[in-house]
Amino acid sequence: MIFLDAAATTPVRREVLDAMWPYLTGSFGNPSSHHTLGEAAAAALAEARAAVAGVLGCRQGEVVFTAGGTEADNLAVKGIALARQAADPRLDRVVISAVEHPAVQESARYLERFHGFTVDVVPVDGTGRVTPAALAGVLRPETALVSIMYANNEVGTVQPIAALAELARAHGIPFHTDAVQAAGWLPFDTRALGVDAMSISGHKLGAPKGCGLLFVRSRTRLEPVIHGGGQERGRRSGTENVAGAVGLATALRLAGERQEDQRERVAALRDRFIHEVVAGVPDAVLTGHPSERLPSVASFCFPGTSGESVLLELERRGVVCSSGSACAAGSDAPSPVLTALGVPAEVAQTAVRFSFDSSVSQEDLDHAAAAVRAAVAGVRNLGAGHGR
C-alpha cells in the first residue's frame, strides 16, 4: 500500500513514541499533584512547553496545549472574539476566508448564532489565495478578529500570512492562523509571521491524534472555552496530556531540524508527480496555486468521472488517498473550498487529493501516477459501458 493521505493524518514517528513512553508508563503523575510523581510530570510538561516555544520563536507562557487543532481553532476564534467583545461591545464582527477549515468556520458561525456577531467572509481568487486588497475590503472598525489559514488542507494553497497579519495589525485587529496543514513544511517563527495566535495539531506531523496547541501572544485577550481547574494559566482547563505534549514537542523539533531539505526534496517529487498525472490524464485539472502550495499536496479534478469511484480504483491498485478534507467525510456535496475557487459543482465532485509525508519516494509517486492514469481510464470506460 502506498499511503498518500498524509493531510488527513500521519503515522506516529518512532522517536516520538520513545519520548512519550515514560509518561505513559512509570511517570504517569498528574502535573498538578504536589508529590514526586506529579512534580516529574510537571517538569516534563514544562520542558515540552520550552521546546515548543523554541521552535515557534515565542515565550513559554504563550503556548497553550490542547487536545488538537480543532480545539485550538475554537479557543482562538471564540476566545479572542468574546474577550474583545467583553472589553468593547462594539467589536461584533469576525473575518474568515472562504476556504477555512470547518473548525474555524463553525466557530465563527457559533459566534453569529449565539453572540450576535457578524461573520465577514473574505473571498479567494481562482488559486485559493486571499490578497491583502481583498482582506482590506472586509475590515471594519467593529472587527474583533481575523482568522485565515496558513495553508489549505484540500488544495494546498499557501496564504501570504505575514502580509495579511501586518494589514490586520495596522488596523489594531488580532490575527489568528490555522497552521495545522503547514506543520512541518513551512516556517513557524511567530515573530516573522506577525500572527497573534496560531493553531497546530500533532497528528499531522508524526505525533499521536489528540494533542495540539495554540500559540497566543502575550497581552492578547482570551476567554477560555473549557472551564474547570484553571490549568494552562486559566486558558484551558483539564488535566494536561503530558505524554501528548512531550510527543508534540518532539515531533515539532524533528520537523524543524529537517524542514528545508525535506521541503525542497518533496516539492520536486510533487512537481514530477503533477507532470506525470497531467501527461497521463490530459484533461486533469490541478486545483490550488501552481507554485505557492504545500510541497506535500497535489490535488486534481478529473472531469467526467466520480471522485469516489476513482478513489476505489486507486485503492484497488494499492494507492490510498482522499477526495478532500477528512473532516467532511461522508458528505456527497461538492467541496466548498473548490466552489469558492470557482470550480463548477459537477467538476468539484470529481476531486482527488494526494498528500505526502516526508518518507515519500519517487518510486511511490511514479507508481501512483500510473495508477491514476489506469483508474481514471477504468472509471470512464465503465461509465461509457453503462451509457451504452
Rank of each mutant, 00 (worst) to 15 (best):
A6D: 10
A6C: 10
A6E: 04
E15M: 03
E15I: 11
A19R: 13
Y23A: 04
T25S: 15
G26T: 14
S27T: 13
S27A: 15
G29F: 02
N30V: 06
S32C: 12
H34F: 12
L37C: 04
E39K: 14
A41K: 00
A43W: 08
E47L: 13
A50M: 11
A50D: 15
A53H: 04
G54C: 08
G54I: 07
V55C: 12
L56H: 09
L56R: 04
V64Y: 10
V64E: 10
G69W: 03
E71L: 10
L75C: 01
K78W: 10
I80Q: 05
A81E: 01
R84F: 05
P89N: 06
V94A: 06
A98Y: 11
H101R: 12
P102L: 00
A103K: 04
A103E: 06
Q105S: 11
E106Y: 13
Y110Q: 13
R113C: 07
F117R: 06
V122N: 11
P123D: 03
D125G: 12
T127D: 14
G128K: 04
A134F: 05
L139R: 09
R140Q: 09
A151P: 01
I161M: 03
A170C: 05
I173P: 02
H176A: 11
A179I: 01
Q181T: 10
P187F: 00
R191W: 08
R191N: 13
L193I: 03
I200S: 02
S201F: 06
S201N: 06
K204I: 02
L205I: 14
A207L: 09
L213W: 00
V225E: 02
I226V: 15
H227T: 14
R233Q: 14
G234I: 11
R236H: 12
R236S: 02
G238C: 06
N241I: 00
A245G: 09
A245N: 07
V246L: 05
T250D: 02
A251E: 05
A251G: 09
L252N: 07
R253D: 11
L254V: 08
L254I: 08
L254Y: 01
G256P: 00
R258Y: 11
E260T: 11
D261H: 14
R263L: 12
E264P: 00
R270Q: 15
D271R: 15
I274N: 03
E276V: 01
V278D: 09
P282H: 06
L286N: 08
L294V: 06
V297P: 02
A298T: 03
C301P: 01
E308V: 11
L311N: 05
L312S: 14
L314K: 00
E315W: 07
R317C: 03
V319G: 00
S325R: 12
A329Y: 07
A329R: 14
D332Q: 14
D332G: 13
S335E: 04
A345Q: 11
A345H: 11
A345E: 15
E346R: 04
A351V: 09
V360H: 02
S361E: 09
E363Y: 07
H367G: 08
A370K: 12
R388P: 09
